[in-house]
Nucleic acid binder design. Structure first.
Lengths: 344, 344
DNA sequence: AACGCTTTCGAAAGCGCTTTCATAGCATAC
DNA sequence: GTATGCTATGAAAGCGCTTTCGAAAGCGTT
C-alpha cells in the first residue's frame, strides 16, 4: 500500500489521511490548519474533528519546504555552560514559542567540524533567522548572511564594520565606572583589583574601560599587577586571586567584570581565610540568579537578562516580517548594592 | 525564471545550481554530499568544487522530506533556568553535533498552548527522536509516542507502568543515605533538617527515602517540622529555612535534596548571622558547577551530569538506528566531602 | 430566467531534495 | 566476436505540504 514503507520505523499520518476522513480535499485541510483562506464552518468542523480523531500534526519538513519558511529560529552561542545564559535562553524560548517558532540551538566552539565537510551550523538552510551571541560566529559568516539578506540579530554585540544588523546592547561603561566610584567614594578603597573577561567580548571591554576611567578620575594609578584575566570563569578567577594572595599583592577590593568571576574571587578569598567584605570587598556585574544568594550577597550591576532575550526575539521577528527593526535596542543597567562591597 | 520567486526575501542556492555548475545531474551531487553511492573521483572533485564555489548547503527541510529523517533530536525540558541543565545541555549538544544532529529545544510548563490549536511541541513530525526530562511530558503523550514507535529516551525518569523506554538513571537513595549517615556518624548531628524537591521528580523522592532510612537506622525520630519543600529553587529554600529560624526550630544540619536548595539554605543561614558549618552544617546533592566555589565549599553528591547527557544521546541514536538500546543506563554517584558539613 | 459578482472548494503544480530504476560504458570470459 | 557481469551515471518519481488557478455554487439584480 504505502510505497517505500518502512523507511521510517514509525507511521505518520498525513494531510491526505485527514482529507479523506473529513471528505474534503487536502487544500481545504491546509486552509483550516493555517487559516489561510475562508472555509465554511461546516467543513471546518469536519476537518477539525478529523484532525483530532487522527491526532494529526503536520510534518514541519513538508511545511517548510512548501511554504519556504522553517518556523524555526536559530541560537548561536559560544558557551552555554555559563550561568548567564540559562535565564536568557528561557526567555528566548518562551518568546519564540509564543510566536509559534521552534528553537534550534547551536553552541559554537566545541568545533567538531571536519575540513572539507559541509559546515554543520545554523543558517538560511535550516532556520528563518538567527540570534547571534558574542564569539559564536565569525565576521566572515556574518558577512555572508548579510549578503544573502538573511535575518540576523546580534545580542550583546555590535555589527562588524560595514555591516548593518539590528543589535541588542546594554549599558556597560557607565555602571562599571559608577561601581568603582562607589568602592572609592563610599568605602574609601584605593587598591581595587580587576578581573577581566574575554578579549573579544565587547561588554567585557567596556566594563574594563569604566574601571579605568573611574580610577583615573580619582587620581588612582593603574596597577597591572592586580589586574588579571578571569575569562568569565570561576576557576580561572579563583586561581588568579589565589595568586595575588600568595604573591602578597595588596588590594582592598576586587571588581570582577562578571558575577561568575566574582564567585571565583569570593571562593579564593574564603579559602585564604579572608573575610568579605571586611578584609576585601568584591563586586561583580550581571546580577545572575545566584548572586543574591551568595555569602555575602553580591553587590553587582543588574542586567535585564530576560528582557534582552525577549527583545532579541521581537526584533528578529520584526526583521523576518520585513518590518524595519530598531537597529539598536539598548538596555540600561543599574547598581544593586548588597553586602559584598561593605554596605550595611 | 524562478517561479514564485520572492517568497523568501533571500536567495537560496539549490542542488540544481550545483549540478549545473559541475556539469552533472543532481543525483550525482546528492551522492557526493551523502556518500550514499560511489562516484568517480573526477566528478566528485567537480561537485565538491562547485559546492565550495557556490557556498552551497543543502536545505534541511527538503532533505528531511525526501529522506524521511529530520536529523534533529528534540529536548523536552521542564525548566531550563535551573543551574543543573546548562552543563547537561552542553554535553548533549556536543554529542548530538558530533553525530550530525541538530538540537531542537522545548521547555514545557510555560504553556502558551491554546485549546483547540494543534499542540506545538516536539514529536515525530519534527524530530527523529526526543530526550524527555522529568516533568516535561505527560504520560499520555509518552503513551502516544510509544504507540507510534517513536524513539524516546527518558532522562532521570523511569517509564510509566506498561511502557518500555530506555532510560538514564542515577543512584540516589544510597548516596543520600550515606550523606546523612556521614552527618550523624562523623559529625554527631541528630537534628537534621531536609529540603525536599518536586513531588513528581523521581530522583528527589529517592533522595528523601535515603534521608528517612538513615534517620531510622540510627534511631532518630522523623520530625516533620524541619522538613520543607525546596522545590529545587533557591528562593523557596531560603524562605523555608528563614521560617525555621524565626520559628525557633532547632537543627544542627540541613540536607538539601539538591545543590540549588542548598544555596538557598546557605543564604538563609548567612542572613541570620549563623555560621556554616559551625552553627549549622549544610549538604546538597548534584555537585553543580558552582558548588565547590561556595563559601564554604559545599559537601554534596557528585552526579556525572555530562556523562548522563552523552549517554542519553548515545542511547537515543542507538534506538533510532534500530539497535536494541540498553533499557536502563545507571550511573553511580559519590559523596564529595568539602567544608560545609564541618569536615576539615 | 439570465446575468454578473462573490465566495468556497478541489486539482494540480511545485518546494529541493533522496532514491529507485534503467541504461550506458567497460572489462572479463567464452 | 558475442554473451555476461559490474559500475557509474542520469531521468524521473515522490516525500507531505502550500498555493495558484479555475470551476462550481450561491446570491442578488434585472
Amino acid at each position: 500500500m504505502a510505497p517505500r514503507s518502512g523507511t521510517r520505523p514509525f507511521s505518520q499520518k498525513t494531510i491526505t489521511d485527514v482529507a479523506q476522513r473529513a471528505g474534503v480535499s487536502i487544500s481545504t485541510v491546509s486552509r483550516v490548519i493555517n487559516q489561510s483562506a475562508p472555509v465554511s464552518s461546516n467543513l471546518e468542523n469536519k476537518v477539525k474533528a478529523a484532525i483530532a480523531e487522527l491526532d494529526y500534526r503536520p510534518q514541519t519538513a513538508a511545511r517548510a519546504l512548501a511554504g519556504q519558511k522553517t518556523h524555526t529560529i536559530g541560537l548561536l552561542l559560544a558557551e552555554i555552560g555559563t550561568d548567564f545564559y540559562p535565564l536568557m535562553i528561557r526567555a528566548i524560548e518562551a518568546e519564540a514559542r509564543k510566536n509559534h517558532f521552534n528553537l534550534l540551538i547551536n553552541v559554537a566552539g566545541d568545533d567538531t567540524s571536519i575540513e572539507g565537510e559541509i559546515p554543520y551550523t545554523l543558517g538560511e538552510y535550516n532556520s528563518d533567522g538567527v540570534l547571534v551571541f558574542p564569539a559564536s560566529l565569525s565576521d566572515d559568516e556574518l558577512y555572508r548572511m548579510h549578503l544573502n539578506n538573511f535575518p540576523v540579530v546580534l545580542v550583546q554585540r555590535r555589527p562588524p564594520a560595514g555591516l548593518e544588523f539590528p543589535c541588542i546592547t546594554i549599558e556597560n561603561k557607565l555602571p562599571a565606572r559608577k561601581m568603582v566610584d562607589h568602592l572609592i567614594e563610599v568605602h574609601g578603597f584605593r587598591r581595587i583589583a580587576f578581573l577581566s573577561g574575554l578579549a573579544d567580548h565587547e561588554d567585557a571591554r567596556r566594563r574594563e574601560q569604566g574601571y579605568h576611567e573611574s580610577l583615573e578620575s580619582h587620581g588612582i594609578p593603574y596597577d597591572p599587577t592586580i589586574v588579571a584575566q578571569g575569562y568569565f570563569q570561576k576557576q580561572a578567577s579563583q586561581d588568579a586571586v589565589c595568586e595575588w594572595i600568595t604573591a602578597g599583592f595588596e588590594f582592598d577590593a576586587i571588581f570582577a567584570c562578571d558575577d561568575i568571576s566574582a564567585i571565583g574571587a569570593l571562593s579564593a578569598l574564603n579559602r585564604a581565610g579572608l573575610n568579605v567584605p571586611n578584609d576585601v570587598a568584591v563586586v561583580g556585574f550581571d546580577d545572575i540568579e545566584v548572586s543574591r544568594f551568595l555569602s555575602p550577597p553580591l553587590t553587582t550591576v543588574k542586567v535585564p537578562i530576560q528582557e534582552i532575550g525577549r527583545a532579541a526575539i521581537q526584533q528578529l521577528l520584526a526583521f523576518m516580517n520585513g518590518e524595519v527593526p530598531d537597529m539598536c535596542t539598548h538596555f540600561e543597567t543599574e547598581l544593586v548594592i548588597r553586602r559584598s562591597c561593605g554596605c550595611r
